[in-house]
Each structure stands twice: as structure tokens, then as C-alpha cells.
Amino acid sequence: MTQDFAGRTALVTGGNSGIGRAVAGLLADRGARVVISGRDAARGDKAVEEIRAAGGTADFVQADLADLDSVRSLAARSIELGGGHVDVLINNAGIFPFGPTAEVPVSDFDEVYAVNVRAPFYLVAELAPLMAARGHGAIVNLTTMVASFGLAGMAAYGSSKAALQLLTKAWAAEFGPAGVRVNAVSPGPTRTEGTAVLGENLDGLAGTTPLQRVGRPDEVAEGIVFLASDAASLIHGAVLPIDGGRLAV
């Protein structure tokens, strides 16, 4: 495995499970010092132990991304753990309450926008200017295939991720001239701890894709880490679908 992230610090939100955990492990394997955030301290500590046991460098920071003070504290702590810098930000964490529009509680609507839009916005606000001052950095946002087409029951979730897709392009325009690349990955149905609640619906969604199977976290992680790497040096403001071909049909 190449060590192309050696000397770099990467913050992976929601890095204690699912796609985020796969990303954190891959970045650590490639030499990055990884900071994992999440709400579940036991799960976060376990992820860190596994990465360290494999020879990587990792720390866990407990954070509630629905709380703005916690978001800012996470940014500050990540900078501290990184020796004064964060070079890679993976905005992976997200929540996805589903249901008919008329039945979505205000509390759910507010929380999905707080976690899926406000938290990435203010992490970028805290970290991207420091990346720009150093002349380099990479940010990868996780969106969803339902940010690009309408699906019943996913109005709140899909629209929050559509906002993140637009932010990806706006941030690429804003920070790109200073050497900071901002891109996004749009996963399709992926089997994780979080999507387990969907049950057979996950397989049903996968059945609408040309590949006709549910994806694995490591398959999505490979694309995310590619976009964060120097191998993607000319890619700015892109949204990479990793969805078994769903957006192609």
C-alpha cells in the first residue's frame, strides 16, 4: 500500500462505522493521521483500536453534529491532534429520516439539515481557510443518488444532500484558487449499520440500478480516498456517482 497521505491529517466525520469506517481505515493504511468523529464513544474507541492494531495512527473525538458548538469544538480538536493542521476533510456523517412530507416532524426536518448541511458548512468554514493558507487540501462530501432525482418519502433527506452537492461546487469555486480541492461522492444503496433499518427496501433500491446489487462500504471508500488523493489533482467541484449505475439510467 502506498503512503501517499504520509504527514497529512484527515478528519472523517462518522468514521466509526459504515462507509466512514472504511474510509478511515484506508486513509490510515496510506499513511494519514486519522481523526474519527462520532456520537458513540465505544464504537469510536473500537475503530481507533483496530486502526492502531493495523499499524495506523488514529484518534477519536466524540461529537454531536446536530450541535453547532460541538461542530466547532471538533474542528478545533482535530487541528490540535493534527499538530496545527487538517489536510483532508471527509464530510461523511449524515442522517436519513424517511417518510411522507406531511408526516415529517419539524424536529426531524431541523435535525437532518443541521447534520447534513450545517455541520459540513461550518467544518469547511473552520478548516478550509487554514488549508488555503497552507496552499493545499482536499475535501470530499458524501451525498446520495436521491439528491439527483425525486423519490417518494425522501424529500427532506434528498434535498439536504442536494444542498451539499451545490455547496461542493460553490466551495470548489471559492477555495480552488488557493489549492484546496472540493469534490463529492454520491453513493447508491450500500449495506452499512445505518442502512440496516431499511431492510428489504435497500435491496429494492439496488434492484433499480444496472448492477442490481447493494454496494459495500469499501467499494465507496475507494472512490472517496481517490478524490482526496493527489491522483485526483485536476478534479475540482465534481460529484462522482458510486451507485451501481443508477444515475446512468
Rank of each mutant, 00 (worst) to 15 (best):
T192G: 04
M131L: 08
A173E: 01
V23P: 07
D4A: 14
G245F: 10
R52H: 04
D108C: 08
Y157S: 05
V146C: 12
D203F: 00
A22E: 05
G20E: 00
E222D: 02
A28W: 08
N92A: 13
R43K: 15
V86P: 14
T9L: 11
R213H: 07
V115D: 04
G207E: 05
V34F: 08
G137W: 06
T144G: 02
V180P: 14
L198Y: 10
S107K: 11
G14I: 00
V197C: 03
S148E: 12
L65C: 08
P120C: 02
D4V: 03
M154Y: 11
I224Y: 09
G82E: 09
D203L: 05
L166R: 03
V35G: 01
N141Y: 09
G135Q: 06
R77C: 07
G55M: 13
A63W: 13
L205T: 11
A221R: 00
N116L: 05
G82W: 14
G207Q: 01
A232D: 02
S229K: 07
A22P: 07
S73Y: 05
V61Y: 05
D4C: 02
L234D: 00
Q3L: 11
E111C: 04
T101R: 07
V180K: 08
K161A: 01
Q165H: 04
N116I: 06
G56Y: 03
L227P: 02
F121T: 15
N201M: 12
V104N: 10
G137L: 04
G150D: 00
K169G: 01
A53E: 12
F5N: 11
H236D: 01
T209S: 15
G31I: 03
